[in-house]
Structure formats: C-alpha cells, structure tokens
Amino acid sequence: MQHQLIGPPNKKIFVSITPPKRNNLHEAVLLCYPFGQEYMRAHKAFRQLANLLSRKGYTVMKFDYPGTGDSYDDGKDIGYNEWLEGAQSALDFLKSETNHHNIHVIGLRLGALVAAELATKNTYIKKLALWDPFANGASYIQDCTAQLSDPPFKPNNVWNIHGYPLPKIFREQVLSSNIEKMTFPETVNIIQILSHENHDTKAIQEAHNQQVTQKVIGPESDWNYVDMVGSILMPTTLIQSIVSTLTNN
C-alpha cells in the first residue's frame, strides 16, 4: 500500500494506491468517493472494493477531493471545479506511477458525476462505472435541499449537509455538470451499477443508450439515511458485482 499527499505545498491531496495482489493485469482503477456523510458511510465499502479489485490484478487508487478527508482546506470555499482539478491530478498521478494504458474509473453518487467528467477528457479511460449516480448537478442539489431540515441560509451561504459544508461556489459550479449532455469517446464502455433505478439512472440510460449497459443489484441503498452515530453502508453483493462486471466486460 502506498499512501501519500501529492500536489503543491498548500494544495496537497491524499491518495492511496493498492497494488495488484496477484496476476498483474497492467490495468488501473481510480475510485471516486461521494460527498459528505455518504463519503464516511462509503469509506469501508471502497476499502473492500479496492481489495477485491487488487486481488483480480488491478492497481487501485483512492483519493480525497480538496476540502474533504485528509486533503487540504476546510471545505468552506471549495468549488466543484477544484474537485475536478483534484480528480484530474489524482488520475495523472496514477497514470505516471503505473504507466498503464488501460485505466478505469468508478464513481459513487456525486463521485459518478466526477468520474464521468474524467471520462470525457481522458481518452485512455476504457471503462466508466457509475454506481447509484446522480445524472446531473441539479439533481444533486435537489437531493441536498431535501435533506436540509432548516432553511439553507448559513453564514457565507455555506450549507451544512449533515455536518459537511457545501459552499455556494460548489453549488453553482456543479450545476453545469450533466452526464446526459456529456459526449464520451467511443472507446469508453459505460456501465451503470445500481442498487435501484430512479429518474437519474433512467435519464442516463436514455441519453447514452448505445454506450451504456446497466445492472440493478438490490437491495436499495439508502444513502441519505443518517443516524448520527456513524453507521456505515456495506453493500457486499453490489461491490462483488462491480468487480465481476469490470473484470468480465
């Protein structure tokens, strides 16, 4: 395992690389976390996903976006564009460290939106796995609004989503991100892996019908459920399905 902080001195992001445990496939996978309490609840699931993929022969990398986890900043004035820059830095680092030509990206929830953005810009990405994705930033903001118990008027207009700051600049910038309108290189194989179908996943399927395959694996993961004591989600069957889908496709 290789864990480090990369980037310029005042903008370091945390990355964690799990090398292949056997049968090195010379392919790598970048995992894109969701945001906020979903990030905390998914952290262990990502750990399991990374371990299973490494056993299949992949090099796997996880990273924390700016303003989240162990990366720089307190998150109160981080924009979505800074997340995309951080994700691109992580991807560049993974490519330079491994020198692999086949790289795949898996994103969960808001992380799926980030992963999709990466796939539009980096032609060496071969597979894009969207795990319970939001189809666009507007849908994400709508989801956040539904979770706010108080009117979202906080100091400096930073929303508090279950203890995690979501600043105005982030909310504004994420609105321009929309998987339905993205154009992907023809070489990208897009896979939707879902705990359940919803309006967002149907919209993605319709927009990219020729390029998307879809798997629905239950039971439904309620990412919005919050118990204030730190319970986590561990959808083992779904994680195994992601691994087999990535390996077999």
Binding site: G69, G163, Y164, G230
Partner: peptide, 16 residues
C-alpha cells in the same frame, strides 16, 4: 478512531 469511521472522523472533526 470512533467505531468503524476512519481517521478523518465523523463530520471530518478529527481533521479540523
């Protein structure tokens, strides 16, 4: 660590 939560802590409190 607290329970299963990693070193960032609930609501990133350990980092703050």
């Amino acid at each position: 660590n607290s329970g299963s939560l990693h070193r960032a802590g609930a609501c990133r409190n350990s980092v703050y």
